[in-house]
Amino acid sequence: MRPGIIKAVHNHMKKNKDSYFLTGDLGFSVLEELQKEFPTRVINMGVAEQNMIGVASGLALSGKKVFVYSIVPFVTMRCYEQIRNDICYHNLDVMIIGLGGGLSYGVLSATHFALEDFAIMRPLPHMNIFSPSDEMEAVLGMEALLNRQGPVYVRVGKKSEPTVYEKPFSFTFGKANIYSESKRDNIVIFATGPILSEVVKAIPLLEKQGIMPTVVDVHTVKPIDAKLIERISAGKTLAVSVEEHYRIGGFGSAVAEVLSQVVGSPRLLIIGTDDRFIKELGNHDYLRETFGLSASGLTDQIVKAFKKE
């Protein structure tokens, strides 16, 4: 989805002279064209993320729209207070583009994983969070976001995520998309990000076991679509949230915050990673397999929980 996002930024910068793109010394084979076309507005800030967020805030204070770009931990955690005080407290028009959502950096291992980002971005007032599942959705989301102002965090995968959407659909930021609805559904699965492709693969596996899921793609983690979550969970035997993030504080917690307010809502199974650093080494698929986040792993976890109900 990275090419689609950069292309959307490129088109925006072409039309809007008051836009800047700051990178934390990353972009090899991805940003060259952008840099060539806008040499004064695309700035390599060096490996200095605190200063990058500060400079982005100063530019935005003077009326510019600013994109900042780096790997998730570097562009969210290293400079978290700058995001809170400079961007969010001042409600500035800065889009943080974070690469490598979840476990997608694979063998680069723990320092490069993004398993806490939802948890730290969600509580920030004014912050919006977009977590696309594939290229198509990333492009649709960017179109919507580029017409808005204010802080937004875009959690991007690494590269070549499996296609979830073959065709464009009606995308509204802040409104979850019902990916597939089963008429005889007894559970609902809420998923966010590229892991939706594993959830989609799990549908027939679940159906074989008599579990009929309705699958909802929650591309906007903040503001979360509470209305849809509440409506669609009603009467289900089980609700499930799926994300590549620690189970603590992330997307599942956001869904739980909604359902905990609803009388008679179903139990929520939060699927994510365990509360420990990941020492196992392997590529993205291997890690998903290892942590029960592949289609079969998800199926096993859901079947087990369903049987308890």
């Binding site: 700035i43 605190q50 200063n51 990058m52 967020i53 500060g54 400079v55 982005a56 805030s57 100063g58 530019l59 935005a60 204070l61 003077s62 009326g63 510019k64 207070e81 700058q82 005080n85 400079d86 407290y89 001042h90």
Partner: peptide, 19 residues
């Protein structure tokens, strides 16, 4: 600029200056 945590003013100032 609202401030209070140290080390924020100069980077933001540079953004204003760059603009």
């Amino acid at each position: 600029l609202s401030t209070g945590s140290l080390g924020h003013g100069l980077p933001v100032g540079l953004g204003l200056a760059l603009s």
